[in-house]
């Protein structure tokens, strides 16, 4: 079995092989699942392939997708960030307040992302300086940051914001022509962030160090990687992306939302990362896999809505999906450990 998320020397294989190499052999099963799911839903609902619905899926992906990109870095480094939804909520409020106060969308975006970054640094501080396990640390801030979001929203209520530029960010479309409904701006933002993250994870010292520290922190430290500074950077990025997700929520709903629109998204983001092939123990996972999983989850949620499945069932389904995602990962790990044991038993040469 070859890993697909390691840098590989360029090869002059056929186009199909190159695509497989980019997507990753392990991600093929995700693509197949996605195709089956799409076929299944489309056969039950003719509305599925309508332009409006496709746009809708694309928009829905944006917020979860941004959280999932940050979460990929965190989980590959063998951490976890449960607070992303709460950070997004707080950032959404701050973005609305800043735009209302200054009339400058750019400042609103910067404010939301800056708050997310700061909250991410708070997470990193708790994890590194106070040495609290990441699950517990971000479970605590999951609650604290949500409280913060309500506190900074005057009266704890959504903050309305009417700015056409901001609206464009959330609900706008580009490349709209006759017969083609265009591409949601929010989806393009996600795409841009994901491409950058993919390049960072694959080709930079920072990205490769994340894989090393997640795979074996002791060995990474002895090889000269500063784990503390890595964690600060990783959780800050997760926070910044959560902040951007919050900005998009504000843009879509024309209001800073302390809770609505971001609650429960940490679950979807974590599910997507595991479904995308990351290991709970760290050291494995790719942006490509995560993005495919985000797409799968968005299509699934959309399909369940189109088919009129009640919300309560959908919640159960989301929970089951997380269990399935991690179980598949554990099964893969057990299989690869068996192979390692056999290699070790084979011993010499």
């Amino acid at each position: 079995m070859t890993t697909t998320d390691t840098p590989r020397p360029p090869s002059q294989d056929g186009a199909l092989k190159r695509i497989t190499a980019f997507v990753g052999a392990e991600n093929l099963s995700l693509i197949i699942a996605l195709i089956i799911l799409v076929a299944l839903i489309a056969s039950q609902s003719e509305f599925f392939f309508s332009a409006r619905n496709i746009l809708n899926i694309g928009q829905n992906m944006a917020v979860v997708g941004l959280l999932a990109v940050g979460m990929t870095l965190v989980i590959v480094s063998a951490g976890l960030d449960i607070s992303v939804g709460s950070m997004a909520g707080a950032a959404s409020v701050v973005c609305a307040l800043v735009v209302n106060a200054t009339d400058m969308v750019g400042l609103g975006i910067a404010g939301g992302m800056a708050l997310g970054t700061v909250l991410g640094l708070v997470n990193a501080t708790i994890i590194t300086v106070l040495r609290v396990n990441p699950v517990v640390a971000t479970l605590a801030t999951f609650s604290a940051f949500r409280g913060l979001a309500f506190l900074i929203a005057p009266g704890g209520r959504p903050v309305g914001v009417l700015d056409p530029e901001l609206r464009f960010l959330g609900s706008g479309r580009v490349f709209e022509t006759e017969g083609f409904p265009g591409i949601p701006v929010s989806f393009l933002i996600l795409l841009f962030v994901a491409v950058v993250a993919h390049i960072v994870m694959k080709t930079t010292v920072f990205g490769r160090s994340i894989y090393s520290m997640g795979g074996n922190p002791a060995a990474a430290r002895l090889a000269g990687i500063n784990l503390t500074s890595m964690k600060f950077r990783i959780y800050a990025i997760s926070g910044a992306l959560a902040g951007l997700a919050g900005v998009i929520v504000t843009a879509r709903t024309s209001s800073g939302q302390p809770a609505s629109g971001t609650q429960g998204l940490e679950l979807e983001a974590i599910t997507a990362v595991f479904l995308g092939g990351a290991l709970l123990s760290g050291g494995k996972g790719t942006i490509v896999g995560t993005m495919l999983a985000v797409m799968l989850i968005a299509v699934l949620a959309n399909g369940m809505n189109l088919l009129g499945i009640p919300t309560f069932y959908q919640l159960v389904a989301k929970g089951l999906l997380l269990v399935a995602a991690v179980a598949i990962g554990q099964w893969r790990l057990a299989r690869s450990e068996r192979q390692q044991a056999q290699a070790a038993a084979a011993g010499s040469q």
């Binding site: 894989y211 090393s212 795979g215 090889a223 000269g224 050291g283 390692q340």
Partner: peptide, 17 residues
């Protein structure tokens, strides 16, 4: 326990320092 990242490649393990 301290030397290698078992789940990563020869290339990465050899070049990480």
């Amino acid at each position: 326990g301290e030397g290698l990242i078992l789940v990563r490649s020869v290339m990465e393990n050899a070049s990480m320092a």
